[in-house]
Amino acid sequence: MSAQEDAARLLVRTLEAEGVEYVFGLPGEENIHFVDALRDSSIRYVLVRHEQGAAFMAEIYGRLTGKAGVASATLGPGAINLQLGVADATTNSTPVVAISAQVGLDRIYKESHQVVDLVSLFRPITKWAELAPTAEALPEMVRKAFKTAQTERPGAVYLAIPEDVEAAKVPSGLGPLPVNVVRPQEPSPAQVARAADVIALASRPIVLAGHGAARAEASQALTGFA
Rank of each mutant, 00 (worst) to 15 (best):
A3S: 09
Q4C: 02
Q4R: 05
E5S: 00
A7N: 10
A8E: 01
R9A: 08
R9W: 07
R13A: 01
T14F: 00
E16I: 08
E16P: 03
E16K: 05
A17H: 09
E18M: 08
G19I: 13
Y22C: 04
Y22R: 15
V23Y: 02
V23H: 06
V23R: 07
F24E: 05
P27I: 07
G28T: 05
E30C: 01
E30M: 07
E30Q: 12
N31L: 15
A37G: 02
L38F: 02
R39Q: 13
S42E: 15
I43S: 13
R44H: 07
Y45A: 10
L47R: 14
R49M: 06
E51Q: 12
F56L: 13
M57K: 09
M57G: 08
E59R: 15
I60F: 13
G62V: 08
G66W: 03
V70E: 09
A73G: 04
L75G: 06
A87W: 11
A87K: 09
A87Q: 10
A89C: 11
A89H: 10
A89E: 12
T90I: 02
T90H: 12
T91K: 12
T91W: 14
V97Q: 04
V97G: 05
I99T: 11
V103G: 15
L105H: 13
D106Q: 13
Y109R: 14
K110I: 03
K110L: 15
K110G: 03
E111Q: 08
E111P: 03
S112M: 11
S112K: 05
H113N: 10
H113D: 07
Q114Y: 07
D117G: 02
L121E: 13
R123P: 04
P124W: 10
W128M: 10
E130Y: 12
L131R: 14
L131G: 04
L131V: 12
L138G: 03
P139D: 14
R143Q: 10
R143M: 01
R143K: 12
A145P: 05
T148K: 08
A149C: 11
T151N: 08
P154C: 08
A156R: 09
Y158I: 07
E163D: 15
D164R: 07
E166V: 00
A167S: 13
A168L: 01
K169F: 01
K169Y: 02
K169I: 02
G173T: 02
L174Y: 06
N180I: 12
N180E: 11
R183H: 03
P184S: 11
P187L: 00
P187R: 01
S188M: 00
P189M: 04
Q191C: 01
V192K: 06
V198E: 14
I199M: 11
L201W: 06
A209H: 04
S219Q: 11
A221S: 12
L222P: 00
T223W: 04
G224N: 14
F225N: 06
F225D: 00
A226H: 04
